[in-house]
Each structure stands twice: as C-alpha cells, then as structure tokens.
Design a binder for these strands. Sequence first.
DNA 1: TGAAATTGCAATATATATATTGCATAAAAA
DNA 2: TTTTTATGCAATATATATATTGCAATTTCA
Lengths: 62, 62
Amino acid sequence: MNKVKKYRKEKGLSQMELASKAGVTRQTITLIENNKYNPSLALCLKIAKALDSDLNTLFWEE
Amino acid sequence: MNKVKKYRKEKGLSQMELASKAGVTRQTITLIENNKYNPSLALCLKIAKALDSDLNTLFWEE
DNA sequence: TGAAATTGCAATATATATATTGCATAAAAA
DNA sequence: TTTTTATGCAATATATATATTGCAATTTCA
C-alpha cells in the first residue's frame, strides 16, 4: 500500500538509516513498510522529509 | 498548522457532518482542527477524501 | 427575542502506535 | 568459509489517539 520501502531503496538507505534520520526506531520503519500499522501524521511528515519526498507521494491512495 | 478547518468551512460542512462522513466522532475533528493532537494516517486519508482533497493540501508543512 | 445548531473543552475508558530488547534468517562482503 | 549488515518478527512497556458522554458559550435562524 504505502511506498516507503520503494522510495527508501531508491535513496539507497537502510531501514536503520531512515529510522535515525526520522528519529524513530528501526522496528517502527519495518512495521510501516509492511503495513502492519497505521503511522501518525507527525511520523509520516518526518519520513517524507527524510526521503526528500511528500505525503501524497508516499501515502496517498486512490 | 493543518488546514482542515479552512477546507471544511469552504465546503460548508459542520464538524458533525465532517465527522460522520469520515466515520469518527466530532471530538476527534475538534481536536485535530485545533492541533491538540496528532491524527493517524488512516484518519488523515478519511478526512482528505471526505473533503475531496488530499494529504499534501491539508497536512503538508514546509 | 428564544429555540436550535455549532463549537470548545473536560473526564474517563479503551485501543493502538511506538520504544526497547533481542533473536533468527538471509544477503553481502571480507 | 567466516563475519558483517540488513531485514522480519516476538514480547513487553508506555504514551497517546480516539470514543463516549456531557456541559457551557456562541452563533444562527425561526
């Protein structure tokens, strides 16, 4: 569903690197990438900025 | 910060109407509009769709 | 006017996002 | 092959999003 994993890999980042750029744990990134739960807006914003991306690109669904 | 109140009013909806379109309580809408807490992604998506809008328009911040 | 609708907010209860630690597997690199 | 590095996932603890109910203050409209 969300495209975090895809964009993280395009940036050549590991889960750990993205987690520390976003200020969360790797576990949180794993769960979000695998759609195991429902991140908060604040976290979506941090991830989007860490990937030089935006909310619609990573999380919008039609 | 977020622009939910602004876009809700442009659509001529009350908090109650938006809440029921989005499937949450009015209290939740009130708190989000007043930046009292941090909605989940699933809720942001429901609100965006209920307002015929999108995540970046309502929630992105530079 | 006064009744009805709208909004802000308080208090409590519950569900769940996130942190933390740790282990197993697989892939990459030495 | 051995040693790192990357990823998935389990278990527990804590913080907080959301529901529910209800009330007070405005605002809207009959």
